[in-house]
Design a protein around this nucleic acid. Sequence first.
DNA 1: GCTGACAATTGATTAGGATCAATTGTTCGA
DNA 2: TCGAACAATTGATCCTAATCAATTGTCAGC
Lengths: 252, 252
Amino acid sequence: MKAAVSNDGHGPAIRAVDPWGSPREKARQLLNEEERARLAGLATIVQFRKGEEIYREGQRADAAFNIITGVVKAYKTAADNSKHITAFLFSSDVFGLSEGGWCANSIKAITPVTAYRLPVRALRSQFLNDPGLEFHVICKLIHDLRQTQHHAFILTRRHALSKISMFLQLLEYLQAVRGEQTTIIYLPMKRSDIAEYLGMSVEAVSRAFGDLTTRGIVKSRDRQHLEIVDRSTFDKMVGDTSISPAAGSTTQ
Amino acid sequence: MKAAVSNDGHGPAIRAVDPWGSPREKARQLLNEEERARLAGLATIVQFRKGEEIYREGQRADAAFNIITGVVKAYKTAADNSKHITAFLFSSDVFGLSEGGWCANSIKAITPVTAYRLPVRALRSQFLNDPGLEFHVICKLIHDLRQTQHHAFILTRRHALSKISMFLQLLEYLQAVRGEQTTIIYLPMKRSDIAEYLGMSVEAVSRAFGDLTTRGIVKSRDRQHLEIVDRSTFDKMVGDTSISPAAGSTTQ
DNA sequence: GCTGACAATTGATTAGGATCAATTGTTCGA
DNA sequence: TCGAACAATTGATCCTAATCAATTGTCAGC
């Protein structure tokens, strides 16, 4: 299986301020190398096409997935058929871990995706043998909770520019902890996905990107790749009312 | 210790729609009765005055708390000194459970509070003896995650009325799962707390309550107690674009 | 009961985003 | 390569909530 990302925190070029505290980002990955190895035999590799729905909210969850490459969105569908995106998930993120055995979110691939598929039955038996696994689940949950709290905080921002800036900061940060380059921010998702994640209209998203570009704060190669050129102004947009970093991770 | 709330789900008068799936609300309580009993000797009972800060974000977390009576708010302070309230916690809620050993949020009593105080050292040793405890932590985390996701969803609502209605629905629901009456909704927190929780101005909060009253949807005894009199209209305000319920609880 | 500090409401104005509508840009399969 | 379906942008208008400002209401301590 793919080796755990070597960057376990204070890697080379993490420009992005850590909004959630010390980058204990291994938590994002459910398993460490040893456990991955132990589960390797049980896992199969699966592929999904771009746009493919991996599972639907309310469905029986019969397997958990561990993304190898690609990006996925997790969302809930409201009564009026509008969507609320709860998270974007990237390589080595885990999803489908269910408590009750049902999916709380729908999951859809927004790029082609390769992933390890772990049947819950196998996972369950592994749980009985390996008590340390529970600890990793706890870490993963704490990580998700922290992420979701940060998401909620972004959603409280009044201005479109503020939301978009914080979103870019988030993507940059996630690239950093994945050990990827951070000069160019990769936006695999559609503008409408961003809108649904940030609770704003597509038009507002578009205009916010336009503003950032016009003001010379960012420069975009194409729709999906963008670079922050005026860092200090950018930081001001974000940091204006950004949350003060917490040292650790806590439930509540 | 106080016995676990008898209502473990399908109690008598849960009018409120469950926005998060099956009411597996025991998860809110970290410990079951047996475990409470086992920890009883280690716990001390502590009291906090209204307005008292129980601990501050970034502080070392040397104890976890289990609320007996009273209400508490968890919040983060932004750089510009503005506050973002992440959660309101009620009786039998747990807080202060930390992974890294540091608090991620500040906690302040918004009413007089009585709570069990569990030193982390005692808790830690208990963890070694009792493997089932980890499972309860997982349940608690899943519960918190679900709550926070719902909070994020509320924050995406465009209209003040929608946010306030969903907030009232949430309070009503929480009263129901705590086994309290649900005809009158108790609002222990200040308007400014609600504003900080919902990402809106105090004035907007005030006007939204005014609107609901004027339209005859709610009736308020006093600042802190309010009753929903026109249920169908109320449900329409909420359900307009409310999220469809999920059957279970899942991470992502 | 008074009084001062704080909480909540109410009013007027304004700024920002939602919405509607139309255009341009992109992608992918025939 | 072309064209159709979808994605993104741009423009104009409307509407809501933020903001500023002033008033009223509430409560704790004297």
